[in-house]
Write a protein that binds this DNA or RNA. Structure first.
Lengths: 185, 185
DNA sequence: ATTTTTTGAGACATGATTGTATCATATTGT
DNA sequence: ACAATATGATACAATCATGTCTCAAAAAAT
């Protein structure tokens, strides 16, 4: 089934505008989003009935963007630990998407689709960690849940370094992976 | 100058209640805070004129609680790296305070008092890191800003592990410090 | 070219929170 | 004990975002 060209155009404008505005202020109004996106307020309500629906739509867009690098990583990765390293480098530029997902996580955490995606992502990280343990590049004494949380947390840390201290995504990706593997000693 | 006993009682009830409610839902209303705290809504407005004033008051309380462990740490610490380790262990139980500060940071980041406190805390971490470098327990090749951000980020990671995966504060403190120093290899 | 659909603008009702004011009552300081 | 002060309840106005609806005009589909 086809989607009207006008609808597609509005939706994209709305989503990308709302993504930015949400990161600036979690309480943006629909009025502001509409006017910034260059569409009528009524149009916004027509296509995203509630705030939750809009947030979920943006979240799905963010997930898709982040997922889009998976294929490249799987192709290039020579080992599990190498996949983790590539993940830092390829995902790091998606600062905006990452921040959004972190900000709104608790607003949509009850949604079954979102739960599924989060769970899948977590499971993938766990699998990667297990494989890396098998390959001898991660100590087996560390709990998997901690390792997965630690890796995810390093993205937050890196994003903080980017936005607060003006570091570049490449630099933080390198530092994050180095600190993860070797520690600071 | 003395503070009326009733005022003190109300304020404490309000602050500790609001701290909890804010962590559950950033958009709690003054009505809910007042009723949960067992005070009249008018009293809440009398003592905290605006939402920002209330948030700032809670934040200052949180900072004081976190600062309260500094004396113990300075007394016990045998080295800079040991001070960092102790910091993880002593601060980790203050999950609620830490989460609150993370949640509301951007709501009060323009306040001069808050800026001062954040800056001071950051500078202290930087000083600790420099000292640890001097003592040979941290690689000198790593940028100080990254190290400070990394340490702060590990608190977030640990808090995530506690709230999402049911780990204990002690366990996460140990894991965080171990991962920080030695990495996962 | 004609029909169908979407759009933007605006009007409107609704509901909720905010913020202020009042006043009798209860508590505190001295 | 007594004066001063804080409190809770309540009422009230003001503001603001939400959500729905209508309608003429523009754009797309056929």
């Amino acid at each position: 089934m086809k989607v009207d060209a006008r609808v597609q155009k509005s939706q994209q404008a709305i989503i990308s505008t709302a993504l930015t505005l949400f990161n600036q202020n979690r309480d943006v109004t629909f009025s502001e989003i509409a006017s910034q996106a260059g569409v009528g307020r009524a149009t916004l309500y027509r296509q995203f009935e509630t705030r939750e629906v809009l947030i979920k739509a943006i979240a799905l867009t963010c997930f898709n963007r982040l997922d889009s690098v998976n294929d490249i990583i799987e192709e290039e990765a020579k080992s599990a630990i190498h996949a983790i390293e590539l993940c830092f480098h390829y995902v790091m530029p998606f600062t905006e998407e990452f921040k959004f997902l972190a900000e709104v996580e608790h607003l949509i955490e009850d949604d079954p689709d979102i739960i599924r995606i989060y769970k899948q992502q977590f499971d993938e990280t766990i699998a990667l960690v297990q494989q890396a343990k098998k390959e001898g590049s991660i100590r087996k004494s560390l709990p998997n849940a901690w390792l997965a949380t630690l890796i995810e947390g390093l993205f937050f840390t890196a994003w903080e370094a980017i936005s607060e201290h003006g570091m570049s995504p490449e630099e933080t990706a390198t530092l994050a992976f180095d600190s993860l593997c070797n520690g600071i000693k």
